[in-house]
Design a protein around this nucleic acid. Structure first.
Lengths: 199, 199
DNA sequence: TCAACGTCGAACCGATCGGTACGATCTTTG
DNA sequence: CAAAGATCGTACCGATCGGTTCGACGTTGA
């Protein structure tokens, strides 16, 4: 039975559904850990439908990663924005959000870094690099508003803490990884701002 | 020509050669980024020889990772040991060694973390977890000898910096990633020891 | 009403995968 | 010298891969 009798046909909605479901499944199983056939059954569509909306599996992967990068960047930025104006509170909120993520049962590390590690393709590596630079912008902004002596340096150290905590949470132990990184981040921020107005 | 006329036959040496060459190639291409056939031609052996020494590709992978984990742990431990008795110098030496690694043209991130990310297999994830805990022991030891208030906490923060710097160097920019992580590590160590003897 | 379009399920394609088998050739061991 | 073992090159196996095609059937829009 090709099209369920009485269902609505909406290509845009279908595409969005594919993107959303594929994001979840590809993150859980890894980009090369699941074939197109099984992926389609998990999504609940046929291969023909998938290939109507995306040229190739790699095309789907890139669309998934692009959407995910924007979504998670927005998620972190909002966590910071909702924490008020104090850069210290913003930093605390960012790492608190990360810790919540680490505690989720299906946490599997940073999807973008995982993708670049799994799929040795230039386009994916470029997407991941851009993703990390979005994070870097966010963190450097916080460092700058905090009055750090060298905001670019502190921003990069915060990025190292963020990605390091994610790796450690994924591969060693998720318990308190975000909190430990947060404590380190706040300590670095204190040191970086001590020579200025306040500590 | 099966066996080169005049060459010596030494199974142990053959196995060691396979292990060494496979370590390099699998790191460069990724665990699933190269097939057994091409792997064998790159190593310079036949498939029959490979399967005489290793039961399966996964078995080879595990042997490679096991050896690599021991080798790199020893490498970092020696870098620390050769730096003298001052924990600050040891930490500096560790991150200096990392920066040298990041600057190598064929640097591709932490092989153990990459393996666990690429190969969704329990055995590989377990090897990676043990690997990170070896690093953690090394760093916690330095934190402890430095007189940190909470050596376990500082050790874990140093592990986060180490793996974070590796990820950032791989996926964002290798330039100065190790040095930035080193500066952060020394700052954290100063803060953690300030309440004690010295700062 | 009717043509265009979206979707399904299944069959199918060539390529590649991990792994095995075999005969030939050389070394090692007794 | 002879038997056993190591290695090679190649062919081969079944399974799976990404991707295409096709007929059937339903919806959408002119």
């Amino acid at each position: 039975m090709p099209v369920p009798k009485g269902s609505t046909i909406d290509p845009d909605r279908t595409r969005a559904t594919i993107l959303q479901a594929a994001t979840r499944v590809l993150y859980e199983r890894g980009l090369d850990g699941i074939g197109v056939a099984e992926l389609c059954t998990r999504i609940g569509i046929s291969k023909e439908t998938l290939y109507r909306h995306f040229d190739t599996k790699d095309g789907l992967v890139e669309a998934v990663l692009e959407a995910r990068s924007e979504r998670t960047t927005r998620w972190l930025a909002e966590a910071a924005a909702n924490a008020g104006d104090d850069p210290r509170d913003q930093l605390t909120a960012v790492f608190a959000a990360l810790q919540q993520w680490y505690d989720e049962p299906d946490f599997r590390g940073c999807a973008m870094v995982n993708a670049a590690t799994q799929h040795h393709v230039a386009a994916v590596r470029a997407l991941t690099k851009r993703h990390l630079e979005r994070y870097l912008d966010l963190l450097t902004g916080i460092a700058s508003r905090a009055g750090a002596a060298d905001p670019a340096l502190l921003g990069r150290q915060l990025l190292i803490l963020l990605e390091g905590a994610t790796v450690v949470a994924d591969h060693q132990d998720p318990v308190r990884a975000g909190e430990h990184a947060r404590d380190a981040a706040l300590a670095l921020l204190s040191v970086a701002t001590r020579t200025r107005a306040q500590g």
